[in-house]
Amino acid sequence: MSPIISERAGAGAGADCAVSTHGLTKRYDRDVALDSVDLRVPDCAVYILLGANGAGKSTALKLLMNLEPASGGTARVFGLDAAQHGPEVRAQTGYVPERHDAGYTWMTCGQLLRHASVYYPAWDHAYAARLSDALELKLERKLGRLSKGDTRRVQLTLALAHRPPLLLLDEPTDGLDPVVRKRVLALLAEHLADRPTTVLITTHHVHEVESLADHIGVLRAGRLVAQMARDELQRTVQRYRIELPDGWEAPRDLVVAASRSSRATREVQWTVVGDEREVTDRLTTAGARVRDVSSLPLEEAALALLPVETSR
């Protein structure tokens, strides 16, 4: 089964996309971190990139910033080749890296912000001040003495203050306590309201950002197994409550992501990937009775795509 790439997302070969990669591949010796990834992040979309640890999410973001050279394929940001025009791409991008290290350990937060502001002519000093207030940055403390959470807050301020057209956020709320996490996301929502911005987030806390997201991509072992708009995802992955007759055999080509069954009754609950009508038809033809079809919250729907076997 080929990867569930939405047709609409692939249309135009990334012409109107803020971020588009073509066959992007990254190898570390024998280890394939990214395998021919065709990412499409439309302009002004909020795109969540999901995947297990080591699936290649951080690598994808690093390649977009040209922090590492690609082993193959290209990555384009606003039409610019990330490898050829690294500085220009980085000028359009606010990046929060996975690691919690913000810069020179001997500098204070305030000094680092001032230092960075010189490198981004688009820096908004008033906004930076509001951000450091809202995130309660310890401006006088040296970076080397900051906790993980405090460093993260500095990194977020650095990424947002110059109002870049693209935000690449690698686990942006990692290391922050729940109260601050909520505040960060509210700031992000306001940031998006102020100016049209494209956002590409990787996170383990999907439920936090799911109300912000309108696109989703799933990486599995370096391959992009799914990429689609949010509504389409919720239409494609649904929960079916089915009554099974005795001696029932599941149709072989049905993609069942998760299942629950109760032994007492003959009722099972399957999370199935596919068009609702098709799936219902197939189940009914096979002899099952579909009692109920319901949508799933975004996180569950996306996670359902993770263990899906893709035969090559």
């Binding site: 606003f78 000028a91 020179y104 490198y119 981004y120 002519p121 057209p165």
Partner: peptide, 27 residues
């Protein structure tokens, strides 16, 4: 967003001035 409104990269003179400041601070 129109691709014409790209943010500029910093000028070398500004970067140089900032680096003098940073190096002096670090020394």
């Amino acid at each position: 967003m129109s691709h014409a409104t790209l943010h500029p990269t910093p000028r070398i003179a500004d970067a140089l001035r900032e680096q003098v400041r940073t190096v002096a601070l670090s020394l």
